[in-house]
């Protein structure tokens, strides 16, 4: 599979602070890539470097196979982006805003503009929007309009920074469905977020940023693969240890973690010994556990010196 985003040794220094410290991103065609990190971990700076807004101190960025920011004029028309929330001209209507941004660069034909605007407005659920100025839009509507602007030229790559900000739960589900649908039709999605649940539901690959370093980058299914243990729920947790001698890894209330990747076998032995089993499952780490294990404390925490 070809690389859609590739960075090598990407560094951004602000004075003595290394906001981004040598990261090697690898996003492949067809991925829904979740770019995770706490606030202040360097996510937005990285996204801005990908798009040529911020110039790297060192390292290289390749977007769709071409060097950024040099090839921006050829590459960026094929990329849709939402960076740190939407921004529009408040005194103009949503359609006027889309029309202006589309006319402001290459790769958006004027003849198809009107049709494309109607299409993306439909896609993001703003098809029936009237002529009122964007100033009067709600936060969620602005977010949808920002997404519409990103979709305007049917991009091969979507770079989305916190795309569900300001949306209500229904809106979030709707946008998730839209992104998955676009991905099925071949769009690669690069999604930066600090919402683990959102990434877990949407992404196929995950990168975790911690204080400017990429501490983890892998397929989601591999990260949350079964650990080889089984979780048993039972009201008589104490008796499990007696039955499965030496295989108990931990007890937490009525949950017992038992070594062994075959729940049926564990179940059979417990039931044969007369231990009631109310639930049984393979142990899988949640994305949250994986991320917390890989990353340190929150980056916006400022500890007092000791």
């Amino acid at each position: 599979m070809s690389a859609v985003i590739r960075t090598t040794g990407l560094v951004k220094r602000y004075g003595r602070l290394r906001a981004v410290d040598g990261i090697d991103l690898d996003v492949r065609a067809g991925d829904v890539y979740g770019f995770l990190g706490a606030n202040g971990s360097g996510k937005t700076t990285t996204v801005r470097m990908l798009l040529g807004l911020v110039l790297p101190t060192a390292g290289e960025v390749e977007l769709l196979g071409e060097r950024m920011p040099r090839a921006g004029r050829r590459v960026l028309p094929r990329v849709g982006a939402l960076v740190e929330g939407p921004a529009h001209h408040g005194h103009l209507s949503g359609r006027a805003n889309l029309s202006l941004i589309d006319a402001a660069g290459p790769g958006g034909s004027g003849r198809t503009r009107r049709a494309r605007i109607e299409e993306v407005l439909d896609q993001v659920g703003l098809g029936g929007i009237d002529r009122r100025p964007v100033r009067a839009y709600s936060l969620g509507m602005r977010q949808r309009l920002g997404l519409a602007a990103a979709l305007l030229r049917r991009p091969e790559l979507l770079v989305l920074d916190e795309p569900t900000n300001g949306l209500d739960p229904q809106g979030i589900t709707e946008i998730r469905e839209l992104l998955l649908e676009l991905n099925r039709r071949g769009t690669t999605v690069f999604l930066s977020s600090h919402l683990l649940a959102e990434v877990e539901q949407l992404c196929t690959r995950v990168g975790v940023l911690d204080r400017g370093r990429l501490v983890l980058q892998d397929e989601l299914v591999r990260l949350t693969a079964p650990t080889g243990a089984t979780v048993v729920s039972t009201p008589e947790a104490g008796r499990v240890r007696a039955v499965l001698d030496g295989r108990v890894l931990g007890v937490d209330g009525d949950r017992v973690v038992v070594r062994g990747a075959d729940p049926a076998e564990v179940n059979a032995r417990l039931v044969a010994a007369g231990v009631p089993v109310s639930a049984l499952a393979l142990q899988r780490p949640t994305l949250e556990e994986v991320v917390l294990a890989a990353a340190g404390t929150s980056a916006d925490r400022v500890e007092a010196p000791r």
Binding site: L51, L53, G72, A87, I101, A104
Partner: peptide, 14 residues
């Protein structure tokens, strides 16, 4: 200030 500059530049306006 309005935030539209970043969208113009990634459009890309050059």
């Amino acid at each position: 200030q309005a935030g539209t500059l970043r969208y113009l530049l990634v459009r890309p306006a050059g």
